[in-house]
Amino acid sequence: MLAYIVRRLLYALPILIGVNLVTFALFFVVNTPDDMARMQLGVKRVTPEAIEKWKVERGYDKPLMFNSGANGLSTVTETIFFEKSARMFVGDFGRAEDGRDIAREIGNRMLPSLAIALPTFILGLFVTITFALTLAFFRATAFDFWGVVLCVAAMSISGLFYIIGGQYLISKVWRLVPISGFGDGLEAWRFLILPVLIGVVSGIGSSTRWYRTIFLEEVSKDYVRTARAKGLPETLVFFRHILRNALIPILTGVVVVIPMLFMGSLLTESFFGIPGLGSYTIDAINAQDFSVVRSMVFIGSVLYIVGLILTDISYTLVDPRIRFE
C-alpha cells in the first residue's frame, strides 16, 4: 500500500512540472514582463525607466530560462523561471502586488473557504443522495417523472440566479441573515448559513439526476433480482443491497473534489464577502495581479492531483478486486 502511494506521488511529479511549464509559458512567454509592466503602470507613467524599475522591484529583470551572463549553477537559478515558477514547488509563492506574502495569505484564507465548502459538500451529498434514492424507489411513477422534470429545470437555471435571488429574498426582503460578511469563531454561522444553503440548492439538479441513473443501473442487476426472489421486502432490498452498492461509484466519484474544497468557490465567496481563497482569486483577477493568479493555478493543480490519488486509493479500499499494481 505504502509503495503504491509513493509510486503514485512520483507519477504526479511530471504532471506538476507540466502544469508549471504551462503556467510559465502563459504568464511570461505569451506576454513579456515589459508588456505586464506597461499594463500595471498604466498609460501615463510608461517610461523605459519606470518599466525597468517595476521589473527590478519584482525580480522580472532576469532572463527567462537561461542566464548566459552568470556562470556555474546560477546560469539556471538566476532566471525568472527558477525564481518565479520552480520555487512554487517548495511553497514559495513570492509577493502579491500589494507586497504581502502570498503563501501566508493563502494559509489565512483557507479556513474561511473550508467553512463554506465543507458543509456545502457534506449537506449537498446527503440531500442529493436521499432525493435520488427516493426517485429511484418510486421509479416509473408520476412522482419520479415530475422529480426528473424538476431536476432538468433546476439544471437549466444559472448558478448566478440562485445566489442573486437567494440573497435578495432571504437577506434583503425577509432580513433573516446578514447579506454578506464573515465573523470570528461561532458567530460565523449567521454568515455561513445562507451561502451553504444556496450552494446545496444550486447543486441539486444535476447531481440528483446523475445519482438516480446510478441507482437505476443498480436496480436492474442480477443480485437485486435474487434478493427479491428470496422474498425480501422492497425497502430492505433498497436500503441493504442497492444503496450500499450504488454508494461505491457515487462516493469514489466525489473523492476527487474533496481536496479542492480548500480552494473555495469563486462566486459564492465574492457575493457573500467571505475572506477565503475564492474571493482572493477574484480580487487578483480584477486587479490583474499575475503572481497571485499563477500561485492559485499551481495550488489548484496540486489539490486536483491529490484528489486523483485519493480516488485511486478509495477504489482499492472499497473494491478488493482492484490490486495495488
Partner: peptide, 29 residues
C-alpha cells in the same frame, strides 16, 4: 494522456482566467 492530465489538473476557471488576462494584454498592446 500526459497532455490531457496536465491540462485537466489545472482548475478550469483559473486556466481560463490566466489565458484571458494574457489575451487582454495582447489586445491592449
Amino acid at each position: 494522456q500526459y497532455i490531457y492530465t496536465v491540462l485537466n489538473s489545472i482548475p478550469g476557471v483559473l486556466l481560463i482566467a490566466a489565458a484571458v488576462l494574457m489575451m487582454q494584454v495582447v489586445i491592449d498592446t
